[in-house]
Design a protein around this nucleic acid. Structure first.
Lengths: 341, 341
DNA sequence: CTGAAAGCGCTAACAC
DNA sequence: GTGTTAGCGCTTTCAG
């Protein structure tokens, strides 16, 4: 592998001069620049990133730690999100490190990557109420950005779809179709987006003079099995719901399957909605009414936020609170109406 | 950040000694080891990976370049595969770098990562006939391993499900159900697995005294839209097929949707099969008969092959041909029969 | 058993 | 304009 030294040797210049010539510093003679660049080209020179990074004291890498266990989550949702992150990172010349959490202790994964200086920042997703990752990274002043709201501070960057508003759209739509008895199948409510969405449903129903029967709120997991089981249980109630809001598309698929098995006609006997609009949502039969999240775009946005944060930290800039507030982005979602309602 | 120097300072030893004490070299006095380790612990020392790597001349990182465009592929299949890779890599203390191909020229992505010494090897998937990536990496003697057969050499490591055998199982199953007019919807046949699978169908049909009507072989893309369109076209033939083999699950979903729209009863009027057994396969209605690929496991296996290859290269070991042959793994697949046939 | 010195490849401060 | 020196943090000869 050819190094600066090799080039310097060939063109009779010092390593320093070669380095600066390549960087295009103004204090190098045009002649030298030409000579050096030509030689570098001919010799097939490429800088050694490792060396550059060591000297810059920056890994030029951002990390994503994927939860290895939760299958439903590992699905297309995460994949799309990752693609967005990767695209934006690569646009900015930053590497993307993906780690798969093995340890019982989730934070140790973060700790390891940080202390080895292997990444300059993290992307989080699916933030929790009192999220230990947020607390940990924040206490270390280590840069990160999240897909999902961060509570209790206006200084941490995140992107989130406005889940409350979104659920308002869903409820309005369902009510306009004549539904009043509406059920919710939610992931754990410790996950912030789930809690937000639920309160969105409740708020809109209240506003429309309806109530969300506590019996019809089912808190479970993220996957279709859950949607399936909960729906079976819901339908066996003496006074079953006529509409089911799945808090993500996969849950909704499970709900549809369960209802179909009971011989119900989806979109007629029972309305089902999802959230995310993963590609499968339009393919499923019946096609799923859902909230579109431009997941890949969101991945890009979050990455931008993170990279901005990192740059500022490296430059020693501290933004005022107001500026940081602009890093908390709440997107207006869109309701996609299909056959399932 | 605390360094070896800091520790040395504190315990009155040289950097060298500290380094060796931490490494547990036998030529350091037990006392020193104890002292050093204690100090390191107290001071919260962690080695700077960048520095270690620069000096080791190894990135301790493997790369995966994802095709950014092909949506269908970006789905759960790729996600699962990535998880397998990540798991195994992390078990062996290796980082996983995921890049999203932007450039028109696919190889330049590889070139960039290699010349910057950012990775020690690559994982490929969906290999092609005369795959340019294979040729490129091989010409550079740069380590890689593939999910998908590599033709024309017995020295390159890969893992593949035996697609010919698998399609044999599918055809046998369909024929046992009375089907003789069978169609295939394939990804581009330049993709090796597609070609293999097709020849598997042909071989088994021939063996059973049947022929695969060339009219019923449809070559297209990887996604459900393709499965949908091709199925519509197939069903409009004067002599339509009674069974459709989708070369992956997503294609099969498209086929099912198209047939349903024509009022056909899947599993009765028309049989449809897939390939991969992605989680959605069992959830879809009707549930899909398909070939199970343990994708995550395969990801792990491929990664093991790659890491072994890298280790040997670093150690300067050259294995004999026979040993390399053991690095070409052909898995026996399993047929999962569900309602769609 | 320990330390000094060299070097991985690069950049930056400071002469000349 | 260019080169010398130093240093990023680590490992590895090689003396002592």
């Amino acid at each position: 592998m050819v190094t600066l030294k090799d080039i310097g040797h060939k063109v009779n210049r010092s390593v320093t001069t070669v380095s600066r010539a390549l960087a295009g510093c103004s204090d190098v003679s045009p002649d030298t620049i030409l000579i050096v660049r030509k030689a570098a080209e001919e010799m097939g020179y490429f800088p050694n990133t490792l060396a550059q990074r060591l000297q810059k004291q920056s890994a030029d890498t951002i990390g994503v730690i994927a939860p290895v266990s939760s299958k439903g989550y590992a699905e297309s949702f995460f994949c799309e999100f990752l693609a967005g992150i990767g695209e934006e990172a690569s646009n900015q010349g930053i590497d993307l490190l993906v780690a798969y959490a093995q340890e019982e202790d989730e934070l140790s994964n973060y700790r390891k990557l940080i202390s080895g200086r292997r990444v300059d920042g993290f992307i989080l997703s699916r933030t929790l109420r009192d999220d230990p990752r947020v607390q940990f990274l924040n206490s270390l002043q280590f840069p990160f950005a999240a897909f999902g709201m961060i509570e209790g501070t206006s200084s941490l960057p995140y992107v989130e779809e406005d889940g409350e508003y979104a659920m308002g759209l869903v409820v309005e739509h369902l009510v306009s179709k004549g539904h009043t008895r509406i059920a919710c199948i939610c992931p754990p409510l410790s996950v912030l987006f789930a809690a937000k969405r639920l309160s969105g449903v409740q708020a809109k129903m209240k506003q429309l003079g309806l109530v969300l029967d506590p019996q019809l709120i089912r808190e479970g997991s993220f996957d279709q099995k859950d949607g399936y089981e909960q729906t079976k249980s819901l339908l066996s109630l003496p006074n079953p719901p006529t509409a089911i809001i799945g808090f993500n598309d996969i849950i909704a698929f499970g709900a549809i399957n369960a209802a179909k098995e009971q011989g119900l006609k989806i979109g007629k006997d029972l309305a089902v909605t999802g959230f995310d609009d993963i590609p499968m949502a339009s393919m499923y039969r019946p096609a799923l009414t859902t909230i579109r999240q431009p997941i890949r775009e969101i991945g890009k946005m979050v990455t931008k936020l993170l990279l901005d944060t990192i740059k500022e930290k490296n430059a020693g800039i501290v933004l005022p609170e107001e500026a940081l507030k602009d890093r908390q982005i709440l997107l207006k979602p869109e309701l996609i109406i299909r056959k399932s309602t």
